[in-house]
C-alpha cells in the first residue's frame, strides 16, 4: 500500500545508505501531467547488507535505483551515502561519488557497447580515472574477469555478441567491480536470463559480496529470487513502500495484502500443490493519476472506506517488521483478515 513514514529507518553507525522522502516525477510529454514514479519513500541499507526491492513493473523500483545514482536526480528527497548527501553534489564531486556505487542492468546485451572489445569495456572505468599504469590496469581487469568466470584471453579478442546472455551479465558485473565500489545496485539482473543461468548469476553475486565486502541493493519482480539473496526486503507498489521486513519474516508472515498476492503468484514447481487462485484482479492503476488513500485500495480484497481516503503510514507490527496498511493480515491492532487461499 501506499505508505509513507520512517518508522523503519535505523539509527546505527553501520548505515551506509539512507534515503529519505525520495520523490521522482517525470513530465508526460507536454501535457502538463506528470508520472508519479516514486512518491516519498524512505529506506536505509547497512554496511554488508543486501536489501531487496520487489514490486511489479511501474512500481518505481528501477527509478529508485537510478535516483540513488542521481541518474537522473530525484525531484526531491535526500540520498545520504556514507555521510554525503548525493543530491547536493554536482559536477566533479558527483562524478567521483558515483564510482562508489555501481549499477548492473537488466538487459545484459544492451548494457555492453556492441562495438567495443569486452576487455576494453571492463577496462574503461580504470582508464577514465587513470588508476595505475596501463599494465596494472590490464592485470586488474584480467583478475576480475577470471573472478567472474570469463576467460580474459577470450575477452581480449571478442565483442559482447559473441557471449551468451549470462556471460554478458558476468561481464557487466566485472565492469562494476573494477573501481572497487562499496555498493552495487542490481536492477533486475537475472530477469532476462534462463532459470538455470539465473542461479549461476545469483550465486556469483553472493560470492562476490563476501569477497569484496559489498553492500547490495537487489531490485527484481520475482520474490523467490529476491528472497533468496536478500537480508531485508522492501515491497513497493505504485511508487510507495508497502512493507519492510527481514526476508524470512516477509515470507512467513506477510502482513500486507499486496505482499501476500505477490507470494501466491509465484508458480510453485510442484504439480501436487494446487495452483492458488490469485486474489487480485486487474493491474496497477496508472502512476499518472494514482488513487487517493492507500494506493493499493483499487485492487485490495480487504479495502475499506478508510483505505480509500486515508493513507497508511509504515508502522512496526512485530520487531523489525513494518507495514503500511490499515488492515494488515497479521499483527497490528486493526481487524485481522483471514489469509486468502
Amino acid at each position: 500500500m501506499a505508505g509513507t513514514g520512517k518508522a523503519h529507518l535505523r539509527n546505527s553507525d553501520d548505515v551506509l545508505l539512507r534515503v529519505e522522502d525520495l520523490v521522482v516525477e517525470f513530465p508526460v510529454g507536454r501535457t502538463g501531467l506528470k508520472v508519479n514514479a516514486v512518491s516519498g519513500i524512505s529506506f536505509d541499507v547497512l554496511k554488508g547488507e543486501t536489501l531487496g526491492i520487489v514490486g511489479e513493473s511501474g512500481c518505481g523500483k528501477s527509478t529508485t535505483g537510478r535516483a540513488i545514482m542521481q541518474l537522473p536526480s530525484p525531484t526531491s528527497g535526500s540520498v545520504i551515502f556514507d555521510g554525503t548527501d548525493l543530491t547536493a553534489l554536482s559536477g566533479e564531486p558527483m562524478r567521483e561519488a558515483r564510482t562508489k556505487i555501481q549499477m548492473i542492468f537488466q538487459d545484459p546485451i544492451s548494457s555492453l557497447n556492441p562495438r567495443r572489445n569486452v576487455r576494453d569495456i571492463v577496462l574503461e572505468p580504470l582508464s577514465i580515472w587513470n588508476r595505475g599504469t596501463k599494465d596494472e590496469q590490464l592485470a586488474t581487469v584480467d583478475k576480475i574477469l577470471e573472478h567472474v568466470g570469463i576467460d580474459p584471453q577470450r575477452a581480449a579478442e571478442s565483442k559482447p555478441h559473441q557471449f551468451s546472455g549470462g556471460q554478458c551479465q558476468r561481464i557487466s558485473i566485472a565492469r562494476s567491480l573494477v573501481l572497487n565500489p562499496q555498493m552495487i545496485i542490481c536492477d533486475e539482473p537475472v530477469s532476462a536470463l534462463d532459470v538455470s543461468v539465473q542461479a549461476q548469476v545469483v550465486n556469483l553475486l553472493e560470492d562476490l559480496k563476501k569477497e569484496f565486502g559489498l553492500t547490495l541493493i537487489f531490485i527484481a519482480h520475482d520474490l523467490a529470487v529476491v528472497k533468496n539473496i536478500s537480508d531485508r526486503i522492501a515491497v513497493m507498489y505504485l511508487g510507495k513502500i508497502c512493507e519492510v521486513s527481514s526476508s524470512e519474516d516477509l515470507y512467513r508472515n506477510p502482513a500486507h495484502p499486496y505482499t501476500d498476492v505477490l507470494l501466491s503468484s509465484i508458480p510453485v514447481p510442484d504439480p501436487t500443490v494446487a495452483v492458488k487462485k490469485v486474489s487480485v484482479e486487474g493491474e496497477p492503476p496508472s502512476p499518472v493519476s494514482p488513487p487517493a488513500g492507500c494506493r493499493f485500495n483499487t485492487r485490495c480484497p480487504n479495502a475499506s472506506d478508510r483505505c480509500r481516503s486515508e493513507e497508511p503510514t509504515l508502522r512496526e507490527i512485530e520487531p523489525s517488521h513494518f507495514v503500511a496498511c490499515h488492515h494488515p493480515l497479521t499483527g497490528g491492532d486493526a481487524p485481522v483478515t483471514v489469509r486468502n487461499n
Binding site: R66, M69, L71, R95, E96, R98, T99, I101, Q102, M103, F105, Q106, D107, S110, S111, L112, N113, P114, R115, R116, I121, E124, P125, I128, W129, S172, R175, L179
Partner: peptide
C-alpha cells in the same frame, strides 16, 4: 538511451568521452 551509455555515466565518463568512445563507434 541504451544502458551501456548509462553504465558509462555511472563509472564517471564525461559527456565528451561518452560521445567519442560509446556513441561514435556505433
Amino acid at each position: 538511451d541504451r544502458e551501456f551509455v548509462l553504465a558509462a555515466r555511472q563509472i564517471g565518463a564525461t559527456n565528451r568521452r561518452i560521445i567519442i568512445k560509446e556513441i561514435l563507434p556505433n
